[in-house]
Design a binder for these strands. Structure first.
Lengths: 339, 339
DNA sequence: TAATTCTACGAAAACGTTTTCGAGGTTTTG
DNA sequence: CAAAACCTCGAAAACGTTTTCGTAGAATTA
C-alpha cells in the first residue's frame, strides 16, 4: 500500500532539493560522489522509477505508438500487431490498440482520442466503412498536426504518409497464373466489393493474368461477397453449376468455405477443383485438404510499419517530407489444394 | 503543420488568462456569457482538444488499462482483447497491450514499464514461464502500490486480486461425461504439462469423470505435450496403437492435429473415434470434420475482466479489499466430430 | 453614503519530471 | 593576497491542465 515514490519524497527524506535528487539519479557530476551514492542507494532500495506521465509531458513525447485496426480476431491483423509490438518493444516503445470494428465513426473517435497527446504516431489499417466513404478528413487532421501515420494493407492512396502493402495485383496475377499452369481452364474468383482496396486490386490481378494468357474474362466468374459472416449461401449459389476447375479466393475463409461446399457436392480437391487462397493463416494450415495460399506476411508488415514510424519519429527534422510505399513480397505456399 | 493548440495559446490570442479559458471551456458561471461564447467559438473553430498527458498528470489517472498476455496470435487471446477493448471503450478507457511471448522476463519488464504511471490497472494472463517458476514478485509489487489487477485464464492462486476463469475441472468433467454417454469406452486425453493451470485442471476433470463412472484411470492414456509448435510427432506416437475410441484435447490445435493423424491412419471420425476439444475457435468451425468443442467465451471473459477492473478503479475507496473470482460458464458446442 | 454582496476575472499551486542559471564556499592561480 | 576557477547544490521555469483563492470594480442594501 506504500504510495508511489517521487523525487519530491526522496528529497524530503534525504533533506536535499528535488533537483539534486534528479541529477544524482542521472549520475550528474554536478553532485558530489557522496551525495550521489546516498541518493542512488535510497532510490534503489525503495525501487524508485520515474513517472512516465511526467516524462511524457516534459519531453513532449510519449514513447507510445497507436495502432488502429478493424478487428483483432482476424489472424492477419493479429500477426501485424505481433510484428508492431515486437519492433516497438525493441526500441523502447509501447503499443496502444484501438479497434474500429469496421466502423468509420469509431475510427474517427479513436483517432481523436489518441491524437491528443496519448501517442507519438499511428500505425493503421482503414475500416471498410472508411474505404467505402472515401472520407479521410480525420487522417488529414492528424497529419496536419505533424503527427506521422504509417498505413498498411488497407491504405488511402491520396494521404501523404508512409505505406506498407503487398502488391495485390501482382500476387493475384501470380496465383492465377499458377492455376493456369496447373491446367485449370475455368477459373472463378471469390472476392469482396471493390471499395475494399485489396478486393479490387486482387480482382484486377486476376483479370490481367487471364487476359495476358489470352483467356476471356467473364464477369459472371467473379463473385463479390459483402457479408463475410454469412458467405456460405452466396458461395454455394456461385458454385452450384459446377463449372469451375480452379478457384482463387481473396481470403482463407472464403476458400475453406468453398472447399467444403465443393466436397459436399462430391467434388474432389484438387483433382476436380484446385484452390488458391490469400492469407496464410491457421485455417489454411489445418483445413482438409490444406490450402495453397499466398502468404501476407503480417508479422513482417507490422514490423516494417513500426520501424518506419519510429524512424520518422526520431529523425530530428519533421521537415523530412518524403513518403515511401514499401511493397512486401508475397510468396506462394503450395499445399494440398492444388495439384 | 499547425502546432497543437493549448490553453495558453488561446489565452494569448484572446488576451485573457489561462484560467479564464479553462473555465470558459468548462462552461463555468464564473465567466461572463460574452467571454465564454467568444472563447468557446474560438476553441471550436480551431478544434481545441485538451492534452491527455496533462490531464493524466493532473488527475493522477490515465484512463488507460494495461493488458498483458502471452501471445496475440492465439484466437482465444484475441477474443479476450476484443472483449476488453469493447467494454473499456464504452467506459472511456483505452487499452495498452503488451505481449510476454510466454517469457517471464518480458512479462516483468512490461509490467514495470506500464506500472510507472502509464496505466491505472492491469488485465492479464500469465506466461507459461511464470506459471512454471511460480514467481509472482512482480505482481505483488504492483498490487502493493495499490494498483489493481484482474487476472484471467492463467491465474496465480495466491495473489490477492480479482480473477476471471472458466471452471476447467467441471468443463473437462462434462466433456468426458459426454464422450462416455456417446459410448466411448477407451478415452484418451491430450493435455499440456501440469504447470500450465488449465492443463492441470482439465486433466483433473478428465480423471474425476472417469472415476465417478467407475472407469479406471490409466496415466498412459494422458499425453502431456510441451512443445505446441511440433506437437504432431508426439500425438502420432500417442495414437499409433489405435486403442482410443474417444479423445479429449485441451485446445483445438491438438484436436485437429489428432483428427488428421487418425484420418491418415484410416480411421473415421466420429464413427471410430469421437473428439472433443477445448477452445471454440476458427479451426473447430472449419476443420474437417468440424469439431465439437467447449467454448471458452474469450469475449465474455475479457469484457468481465475490464468491467471488474474499471469498477475497482472508480470505486472511491481503495480500501475495498475484497476480491472476487468469477467463473464463466462453458458450453458444449456439438459438431461433426462426435456422434 | 457607507457597508455589503456580486460579478468577472487573474494569480498561483499542484501533478512529477528535467534543465538552466545563479550563488555560496572552497581551491587554485598569478 | 586578490582574482579566478571550481565544486556543490538549490531555485525556478517549463510541459498543459484544473482548481482554489484573492481582488477590483460594480451593484445592491441599509
Amino acid at each position: 500500500m506504500a504510495q508511489k515514490l517521487t523525487l519530491k519524497k526522496i528529497a524530503q527524506e534525504l533533506k536535499v532539493s528535488i533537483s539534486t535528487v534528479s541529477k544524482a539519479l542521472r549520475d550528474s557530476h554536478e553532485i558530489s560522489v557522496e551525495t550521489r551514492t546516498k541518493i542512488q542507494e535510497y532510490a534503489k532500495q525503495y525501487n524508485f522509477k520515474p513517472n512516465n506521465i511526467a516524462l511524457s509531458l516534459k519531453n513532449q513525447k510519449t514513447k507510445k505508438i497507436g495502432v488502429i485496426i478493424p478487428e483483432i480476431v482476424h489472424h492477419f491483423f493479429a500477426t501485424v500487431i505481433s510484428g508492431v509490438e515486437r519492433v516497438a518493444n525493441e526500441k523502447g516503445y509501447q503499443v496502444i490498440i484501438c479497434l474500429s470494428g469496421e466502423s468509420f465513426d469509431k475510427e474517427v473517435v479513436n483517432m481523436d482520442m489518441l491524437a491528443n497527446g496519448s501517442i507519438d504516431g499511428f500505425v493503421m489499417s482503414l475500416s471498410k466503412e472508411t474505404m467505402e466513404r472515401q472520407d479521410f478528413h480525420h487522417l488529414r487532421e492528424v497529419t496536419n498536426q505533424g503527427m506521422p501515420i504509417v498505413m498498411f494493407d488497407r491504405v488511402a492512396d491520396d494521404i501523404a504518409c508512409d505505406k506498407i502493402i503487398i502488391d495485390d495485383v501482382e500476387a493475384a496475377n501470380k496465383a492465377t497464373d499458377f492455376l493456369l499452369r496447373k491446367n485449370c481452364r475455368n477459373l472463378g474468383l471469390i472476392s469482396t466489393p471493390d471499395y475494399v482496396n485489396v478486393g479490387r486490386l486482387r480482382t484486377q490481378g486476376f483479370k490481367e493474368a487471364l487476359m495476358k494468357r489470352g483467356f476471356e474474362v467473364d464477369d459472371q466468374a467473379i463473385l463479390k461477397v459483402e457479408d463475410i459472416e454469412n458467405c456460405g449461401d452466396k458461395i454455394k449459389a456461385f458454385l452450384t453449376d459446377g463449372k469451375y476447375d480452379g478457384l482463387l479466393a481473396v481470403n482463407e475463409l472464403f476458400a475453406v468455405t468453398a472447399s467444403k461446399i465443393l466436397q459436399g457436392m462430391g467434388k474432389e480437391i484438387p483433382k476436380d477443383v484446385a484452390i488458391v487462397a490469400f492469407t496464410d493463416g491457421m485455417l489454411s494450415k489445418y483445413a482438409s485438404p490444406t490450402l495453397t495460399t499466398i502468404g501476407q506476411k503480417g508479422e513482417e508488415m507490422g514490423g516494417l510499419a513500426a520501424a518506419k514510424l519510429i524512424q520518422k519519429l526520431e529523425s530530428d527534422h519533421q521537415e523530412d517530407e518524403t513518403y515511401e510505399t514499401v511493397i512486401v513480397k508475397t510468396s506462394l505456399i503450395e499445399r494440398e489444394s492444388t495439384p
